[in-house]
Amino acid sequence: MTNNKNNLYFTKDHEWVLVFESNVARVGITKYATEQLGDIVFVEVPELDSDVTIEEEMATVESVKSASEIFAPITGTITKVNDELEDSPELVNESPYESGWLAEIQFENEEELAQLMNQEAYENYVKELKEEEGQ
C-alpha cells in the first residue's frame, strides 16, 4: 500500500481510503485509530450493495471497552466487505492497512476525495494530536 501513496487518502476521523482502480476505493481505519481503540473484538461491516454517504455512519468497530462508529469517507455503494473480520476482528489491530481493511466502495464523485488528507498531511495531523495528548 505504501507504493500507492498518490492514491491514498485519510479522514480526520482516522479512516484511510485507497483508490486502486477506477472509482473503487478500499477503506479501513488507521493504526492511530486502532491504538486509541485498544483490542478490537467485533466489527460490524456495512451490508453489501448498500449505499453509504460521506460522513455518515457506515460500520462499527468495537473494542472491549466501547463501540465506535466508522463514517463513510466517500459517497458510494459497497461492492465488497472484509468477511474475514467476522471471525477475526483482531486483524484490524494486527494489520490495519492490509488484512484489516473494512470494505470497498464504488464512488461517483471524485471531488469528494479533495476534502481528504494525503499521507503527509495526515501524519502531521496525528503528530499534533499526540503532542496535545502529551505523548
Binding site: 485498544g38 483490542d39 473484538v41 473494542s63 472491549v64 471497552k65
Partner: peptide
C-alpha cells in the same frame, strides 16, 4: 485503562 491490552491483562 490499560498498560498493554485489556485482553492480555484480563
Amino acid at each position: 485503562i490499560h498498560f498493554t491490552s485489556i485482553i492480555e491483562e484480563h
